[in-house]
Design a protein around this nucleic acid. Sequence first.
RNA 1: GGGGGCGUGGCGAAGUUGGUUUAUCGCGCCGGCCUGUCAAGCCGGAGGUCGCGGGUUCAAUCCCCGUCGCUCCCGCCA
Length: 635
Amino acid sequence: MAIRGRRPGCPPSLAGPALGHPWPTAGHFSVLGAYGRVPGMEDMKRTATCGELSGARAGEVVTLNGWVHRFRDHGGVKFISLRDRYGITQLVVDEDAAASVREAAEGLKNEYCIAVTGTVRARPDAMINREMATGEIEVAVSGIKVLSTCEILPFMIDDKSDARDELRLKYRYLDLRSFSMQRKMKLRHDVAFLVRDYLNGQGFFEIETPTLIKSTPEGARDFLVPSRLQNGKFYALPQSPQLFKQILMVSGFDRYFQLPHCYRDEDARGDRQLEHTQIDIEMSFVSKDDVFAVVEGMMSHVFRGALGVELQTPFRRLAYDDAMNRYGSDKPELRYDMELADFAPFVEGSGFGVFESVLASGGAVKVLRVPGCGEYSRRQITDLEDVAKTYGAKGLAWMKVPAADQLEGGVAKFFAPRSAEIISALGAAAGDLLLFVADSWKTACTALGAVRTRLGRDLGLCDPAKFSFAWIIDFPMFDWNEDENRWEAAHHMFTMPQERFLESMERDPGAVKGDLYDLVCNGFELASGSIRIHDPALQRRVFNIVGFSEEEARRRFGFLLEAFQYGPPPHGGIAPGLDRLVMIMAGESSIREVIAFPKNTAGVSLMDESPSEVDQRQLDELGLMIVPKEEPSTS
RNA sequence: GGGGGCGUGGCGAAGUUGGUUUAUCGCGCCGGCCUGUCAAGCCGGAGGUCGCGGGUUCAAUCCCCGUCGCUCCCGCCA
């Protein structure tokens, strides 16, 4: 499926605020004179960009530098669309142009990099192109210099038929030439700039933390970097600057931020890369409300500046339990309602054994009312059932509401006696479809939530121009790990348990809510953060619950625990993902679309072909030996 | 680790329920024509071991198995 949202074809979108403010031109800042000496083009350095000329400049002699976007040869008159970062300008080679110029023009091919001198002239009225920012003028060419030539392209720049991703990534430098990609890179630049602008204005310091750090094998897999000087030892690349930013709080830096690269050696996804950029924030002497206020202010600043969109703040807040119960997700898509409901009240006495036994064993029966889908075919419902099964549901029960007081089809016969009551409780109407999942509470919620998301997409319920933010709060502090038979931290071990659970924490870890929060937008988790523990005694209690010995804690996080003996301030923070933020703002569904040089789902960079093998000498210096993974036996 | 989808000239796609014929279309490319296009137009042309390997068959681009690559998803991602 093609996922790029580009459709410019023509450059008018460049001039307009398609993604916010206009493209800068020489009027806003000087792109000219930013060059050093370019051998061979001293006399052909640009005096204007391809996006800035208008009727007011008619008569001016200009030099343009750029790429041949299209070439239209009419025999007598020839047109060249010259493209640079700023737009497209039409060049004309008239019939009476010098023979040398005509000859040079005829030799031009797509994507040649050229310098052109000519006279700006207003187009005749009938020839004005109103779709184009520079459409009222053209440049009558008096000189052409080919700066470099171009091979036959693997795909057309800004072609309407998209090349497949594999090819785009291999020739990323060509892909990035397209206005579509240039616009996204500009958006990313704008967002990063606005983030810095806002946080600086709020008194935050940008402080860099190391990228070669100690491996702390909790959570995601670390990328390891072997040490040559310390033979047999390894650095890890940071999954986030978590420990360092907390240390910075101990150091008194009150308000810190950074846009660090973070690395996780886990399988990539459409919205997940091995390597991504966070907007890492930490603050002292705060509660979560202070963190929320900063992030809400920052997001407002960013959306206003980059997209011209006013966000409504404060963002709504949704407890984790509510998010799960109502939307079946801890990162709910909130651009539409269509909430899940609890069907348990109607199960008892229905005689439907599947539902009854699930409830009897402590599970849940959730129902999703799908307005107007009562005509769904068996086939369509089976497709939805497959979605539910993917998320662990054993099946998807259904019934239809043919009339305001009637239930039919699927499991309706068990519930027909209470039809009116059920329909009224669910707010159902004739023509609705009801879908059910019965399972453990979490599975029932997530499976039916996935069905909800799928339906939202199929039914076109998502307004692409809408950004629905929400804070998800009151997350559980600990998850029970079935495999290892122990409690583990749901977020990380430095998260502050909510005060009301401090007393009962050891007795009932599963009930403890953490001072822990996510920011979600349009069904994506945009940020995750928490108020941290700064009290060593409390920290020990948490370590204890997750089965972390004092010694093990010291070995892994010793420096942090030690730092906390020297007057640590109460602190907390958050880390929005920059790539996901830009992805959502750009209306893309793949994070690769907003990363200049992304890796594919197998972690391979198709352009530079990393990762790659290394010389034996490099391995020797590091004291490493490659042990091939065993081939699966084929006998 | 598991499941789904895709792989056909440089690019994007179509296709044959296995056969007759030269594997089709659009873009691009090459040559020619053309004074107003802006996705220019018209005429002509080149370019493909249908991802790779094996199997079934008289016959495979098509069916089967394996493999490689890309992609979406589950698991994983404190």
